[in-house]
Amino acid sequence: MYDQRTDEELFAEVAQRRAAGQAFGGPLGALVERWGRPARYVVSKIQASYGRGSPADADELFQDAVGKFIDRGLDQFRGLSEQMPGKSASPKTFFLRIVKHVAIDFYRRQREDLAPAPRDPDDAPEESPVQTARAMESARRGEERSEAQAFYWAAFARLQREHPKEAGAWELYHHLDVEDHVECARRLEITVANSYKRVSRAQAYLKLYLLEARQTAEAEAAPRSSIAGKVSDE
C-alpha cells in the first residue's frame, strides 16, 4: 500500500500519526526498508576508509541507525540541509547522515579499543593459550575481510576506468538505492534491456578483475615465502 507513495508523503504520514499518538510503524517501516541498500552502501564506504569491518556489521549498524532515527531523529528533522543553509533536505538524506555518524562512531571506538594502552609491563595479566589463539584468529579474520574489501574496491575502480558505462549501471543497481532495471534505465537514459546487459557485463568484469588480483597477490607472495624459508634454513 506504500509502494506508490514518495518518501516525503510517507514521512508526513509518520509525523502526523506520531503527533496524534497513533501507530506509525507501517509507513516508517516502508521508509527504512527503502533506505536499506543505500544505508549499507554508506557503511561500506566508512568501512573502506577505516580499513576494517564486515558485511555483518552493516545490518547491525543499520538497525542502530533506525533506533536513533526513531528516538531522536524524528524530532530533530526540520527538512533543511545542514551543509547548505536555506536548502531543503529529504528525510532519506537525514537518515543516511545518521547512518554515517553511527558507523564512524562504531569504527572509531574499535580503533581506540585496539590501540595499546600505556601500562607497567609487570602488571600485564598473562593470557591463556586459548585466549591468545582466539585473538590471533580474530585478527586473521579481520585482515581477510579488509583484504577482500580492498580487492573489491580496487576492481571497481578498474571497472570505472576501463568500462565506465558498465560501472555506472553497477553503481546505481548495487551501491545506490536503485532497486530495479526500469529505474536504472530511466536514470541512465537507456533501455531496460541495456540496463540488464550493462549490469551483467559489469559483474563478469568484476569477477575477472578479482580473480586476476588474487592470482597476482598469490604470485607475489610465493617468492617472499620461498626467500623466508631459505633464510630460516640457513
Rank of each mutant, 00 (worst) to 15 (best):
residue 8 E to N: 10
residue 12 A to L: 07
residue 12 A to H: 07
residue 14 V to P: 03
residue 15 A to M: 14
residue 19 A to N: 03
residue 22 Q to D: 12
residue 23 A to Q: 09
residue 27 P to Q: 04
residue 28 L to G: 06
residue 31 L to H: 06
residue 31 L to Y: 07
residue 31 L to S: 11
residue 33 E to L: 04
residue 38 P to C: 11
residue 40 R to M: 14
residue 47 Q to H: 08
residue 49 S to M: 14
residue 50 Y to V: 04
residue 52 R to P: 00
residue 59 D to V: 05
residue 61 L to V: 03
residue 62 F to G: 10
residue 63 Q to G: 03
residue 66 V to M: 04
residue 67 G to V: 02
residue 67 G to D: 09
residue 69 F to D: 03
residue 74 L to K: 04
residue 76 Q to K: 04
residue 77 F to M: 02
residue 78 R to C: 05
residue 84 M to F: 06
residue 85 P to G: 02
residue 93 T to Y: 06
residue 93 T to K: 01
residue 94 F to N: 04
residue 98 I to G: 11
residue 98 I to P: 02
residue 99 V to W: 15
residue 100 K to C: 13
residue 101 H to S: 14
residue 106 F to S: 15
residue 107 Y to L: 05
residue 111 R to L: 11
residue 114 L to V: 05
residue 128 S to A: 10
residue 129 P to G: 09
residue 131 Q to M: 13
residue 134 R to P: 05
residue 143 E to K: 12
residue 148 A to M: 07
residue 152 Y to N: 03
residue 153 W to S: 01
residue 156 F to I: 08
residue 161 R to N: 08
residue 165 K to E: 15
residue 165 K to S: 11
residue 167 A to M: 07
residue 169 A to C: 06
residue 169 A to W: 01
residue 176 L to Q: 13
residue 178 V to Q: 07
residue 178 V to A: 09
residue 186 R to W: 02
residue 187 R to G: 08
residue 192 V to C: 10
residue 193 A to T: 10
residue 194 N to W: 08
residue 199 V to R: 06
residue 200 S to F: 04
residue 201 R to A: 13
residue 205 Y to A: 13
residue 215 Q to S: 05
residue 219 A to S: 15
residue 221 A to L: 08
residue 222 A to Q: 11
residue 224 R to D: 11
residue 225 S to C: 09
residue 226 S to A: 15
residue 228 A to C: 03
residue 230 K to T: 00
residue 230 K to D: 09
residue 233 D to K: 07
